[in-house]
């Protein structure tokens, strides 16, 4: 059996080295490295898309669409197709200024997502950003479950310079939301940011808890602009689609915040989510300081998606695959 294992890793290593030689720098290499649009070309395109976490289905759809365009518009040159491809994804991911209307109105921003995606950090950054735009911001620490989550948000409230409504650890988060909404109305706050506890979308009772909070905001603050943002970790794979779907069942999602975009992950699942669920990415998180939240830029996103320099780096190190230890 051990021989077979060794064989597998040796082959993997060889395969990776080979790929390194093939990929020079992302999309440019793909389109200039091929003189004609053939099966090999599509295969390479498929690889880039899947490596970017777009998922099998979205990748197949894109490739089918490209094939159709090639036929319909008589595209012969890879370079021509490049424009078509880039434009098509960009267009799909485009967000208009209207999507950010809540920043200017009296609104309640409900921030939800699974554990560890960066909800609290994002709420902190968002508070800082809105504060800079001279909005009156109030935060609600409705994560009463995780140890020290309240303290964490307190620190962010301090950094952003805004008020915070908090409940005790273990308190009903819906009661914190209720208090926060009352306070927001009483203090005539512009934007109420609600941080919630991370929860896996397949936990029924935790999702019900979220539904209850959502209902309370609706009931208690019907005039406010509602903004329901699901926070997704760009490192996450296909499960992010399921997350968006399930959280969308609880509250009508108006947007996605894609965090940890400063790493090597491409966050391509956002393309699949956009095409399937029509939820736009509105912000991306690119670091840990208060300024590290940016409005989503579909240009930059698509460029990064096809920039495979990182996988080159990865290939360089395959020598270190430790066959002996397996």
């Amino acid at each position: 059996m051990s021989e077979e294992k060794l064989g597998f890793f040796a082959r993997l290593k060889k395969g990776l080295t080979k790929t390194r030689n093939n990929i020079v720098s992302g999309l440019d290499a793909l389109f200039s490295g091929f003189s004609k649009i053939d099966d090999d070309f599509y295969e390479e395109l498929e690889e880039i898309l899947i490596m970017g976490d777009l998922g099998v289905r979205a990748t197949e759809n894109i490739i089918d669409e490209m094939k159709e365009r090639v036929k319909k518009d008589h595209i012969k040159e890879p370079a021509q197709l490049k424009e078509v491809l880039i434009e098509s994804i960009k267009e799909q991911m485009q967000v208009t200024e209207a999507e950010y209307a809540f920043e200017k109105e009296q609104s309640v921003v409900f921030v939800i997502g699974v554990n560890g995606v960066g909800k609290t950090t994002t709420v902190g950054k968002l508070a800082g950003k809105l504060k800079n735009e001279n909005r009156k911001v109030l935060m609600a620490a409705a994560d009463t479950f995780r140890a020290a989550a309240g303290e964490q948000l307190t620190e962010w409230a301090h950094r952003a310079g805004c008020d915070l409504i908090q409940g005790a650890e273990g308190a009903d988060p819906a009661s914190v939301i209720f208090d926060a909404v009352s306070a927001a109305k009483a203090r005539n706050v512009d934007v109420l940011l609600c941080d919630t506890a991370g929860r896996l979308h397949n936990k029924k009772n935790l999702m019900e808890e979220l539904r209850k909070m959502n209902r309370i905001i609706d009931r208690e603050f019907p005039n406010a602009h509602r903004e329901n943002l699901v926070v997704l970790d760009a490192t996450t794979g296909q499960n992010a689609l399921q997350q968006a779907r399930e959280f969308g069942e609880v509250a009508d999602l108006t947007g996605i915040i894609l965090t940890k975009m400063d790493g090597t992950a491409k966050g391509g699942i956002a393309v699949a989510i956009q095409s399937e669920l029509k939820i736009p990415v509105k912000y991306i998180g690119v670091g840990e300081t208060i300024d590290d939240l940016q409005k989503f830029d579909s240009n930059a996103f698509v460029n990064a998606l096809f920039d495979v320099k990182q996988s080159e780096e990865m290939d360089d190190g395959t020598e270190n695959v430790n066959i002996g230890e397996i």
Partner: peptide, 29 residues
């Protein structure tokens, strides 16, 4: 839940700090 990038993450950590083992979290999802 990590996607395609898992290889980059694991490789970099292993190369730079030489890991001995892995703990996989959020498997109840």
């Amino acid at each position: 839940m990590t996607g395609q990038d898992a290889v980059n993450v694991a490789k970099e950590f292993d190369e730079k700090v030489s890991i001995d083992g892995v703990v996989l979290t959020k498997m109840d999802g």
